[in-house]
């Protein structure tokens, strides 16, 4: 078999231009983020669009990065888990996950954090049904979701309190 054709292109990830050199056409965005750009906060639990562990925001929309070809994401605005807290610290949502006991093995956690960040931006005070529906594309095998729902409630409350006290 002949050697595959190699591509070079530029992605916008977390507000920065990132060069991809010698990539292959069939590489998913998930693969390029993890293996070429070192952004392993995006997880790879199924690579078939069924688990949500690879969730990223593409042009502000929640997407599974495993189902997108990286080379097709040129020119799009990609935000990964790492881009949610640019300073490197923890967001209130991440803190809520830890404090509510929503993290066990933690493999689902990054994807959930991205999905819930998206939810709370759209629906600041979600009902339990809205929370469950919003995270129903994110599989978690460890927690049974009870503490995750609780973490989202807490984060929503914290966000609402923050907004009320904001000048």
């Amino acid at each position: 078999m002949s050697a595959p054709e190699l591509l070079s292109y530029r992605l916008w990830v977390n507000g920065h231009a990132r060069e991809v050199e010698g990539g292959r056409l069939e590489e998913s965005l998930l693969y390029v983020l993890r293996e070429r750009l070192g952004l392993t906060g995006t997880k790879n639990a199924c690579e078939e669009g069924e688990c949500g562990s690879c969730s990223v925001l593409v042009d502000g929309r929640l997407e599974c990065s495993c189902t997108i070809l990286a080379a097709s994401a040129v020119g799009r605005d990609i935000v990964t888990l790492e881009g949610l807290s640019p300073g490197g610290g923890a967001t209130a949502l991440q803190l809520a996950f830890v404090e509510a006991g929503a993290v066990q093995c933690g493999f689902c956690t990054p994807g959930l954090v991205v999905a819930v960040t998206d939810l709370l931006a759209r629906v600041p005070e979600p009902t339990d049904d809205e929370i469950r529906e919003a995270i129903s594309g994110n599989l978690c095998r460890c927690t049974g979701y009870g503490r995750i729902v609780e973490a989202v409630r807490r984060a929503a409350r914290a966000q609402a309190a923050g907004m009320r006290t904001a000048p």
């Binding site: 392993t40 790492e82 923890a90 830890v98 404090e99 933690g106």
Partner: peptide, 20 residues
């Protein structure tokens, strides 16, 4: 209910799983 020592690393995506 002491917090998990690895919880924040997992929530921030910096915890190294075997696949990472």
């Amino acid at each position: 209910s002491l917090r998990r020592p690895d919880g924040m690393a997992k929530a921030r995506g910096v915890f190294k799983f075997s696949s990472d």
